[in-house]
Amino acid sequence: MRAVYAFLAGGVFGVGLLISGMTDTRKVIGWLDVFGDWDPTLAFVMGGAILPMAIAWRVAAARGTPLLGGDFPARPEPTIGWNLVIGSTLFGAGWGLSGLCPGPAVASLTWGGAGGLVFLAAMAAGMYGAPPIRSRIDAMSTA
């Protein structure tokens, strides 16, 4: 049952990414390009996505448990470490360079061509290599 709903959630997410234009790297780069011909679409996408999710967090708090059981994800400790700052900066650089973030990169697999596959392979390699880098940054910042 968990897999069925996960399949559905992933599917709806992907259709939303396609409709909103987030699988089109020109729209993403156009939004980040504040000094150029700025395209505000991404702000509408973000705003539109945050709205139902803000309601969902309230419903979650009122319900206490997810429909399929288990626990809702705990609120993470509000600590801002170097991993968060360095990681987000690196991610932003790659996002600006290509116009792709992880969701749209996966969603466009069937029409993204060779370039899309190169991006996915490099992203997976980066994800595979990240844990030791993460530990090293943690060790340095607590030393």
Binding site: F13, T41, I50, P52, L68
Partner: peptide, 19 residues
């Protein structure tokens, strides 16, 4: 963008409230 965004948020809400 707005419609697609609401759909994205709906998917996130589904994954949170169900799974």
């Amino acid at each position: 963008g707005l419609i697609g965004g609401v759909i994205i948020g709906g998917a996130a809400a589904l994954y949170l409230l169900v799974n």
